[in-house]
Simulated assay, not measured.
Amino acid sequence: MDIIYLLLGISVLVAIAFFTAFIISVRKGQYDDVYTPSVRMLFEDELVKTKSEKNQSLNKVKSS
């Protein structure tokens, strides 16, 4: 029974260590996206159609 308490304590310490490492990496900008902003300007002119607009255009094609 003592080993369960020992393993539980160790697992809590390991979880705290991983959580601390995650917080530090987020604060240092490890997960910042540096690629998308440079490419976003290439795709700004695309028109985004909603589902209703797509359905209307399909209905026009079908009725013709």
Rank of each mutant, 00 (worst) to 15 (best):
D2V: 13
D2P: 09
L6M: 06
L7G: 05
L7S: 06
L7F: 05
G9T: 14
I10T: 10
S11D: 06
V12R: 08
L13I: 12
V14P: 07
A15M: 10
A15T: 14
A15Y: 11
I16F: 07
I16K: 03
A17S: 07
A17D: 03
F18V: 13
F18H: 08
F19D: 07
A21C: 13
A21T: 03
F22V: 01
V26H: 08
V26L: 12
V26P: 04
R27K: 13
G29E: 06
G29T: 02
G29P: 00
G29C: 12
Q30Y: 15
Y31K: 05
D32G: 09
D33L: 14
V34S: 03
V34Q: 08
Y35N: 13
T36V: 10
T36L: 14
V39K: 05
R40L: 08
R40E: 09
M41H: 10
F43V: 11
D45P: 00
D45E: 04
E46P: 00
T50Y: 00
T50E: 00
S52T: 04
S52D: 08
S52W: 09
N55S: 09
Q56R: 11
Q56M: 04
L58E: 11
N59A: 08
N59W: 13
K62I: 09
K62A: 11
S64P: 03
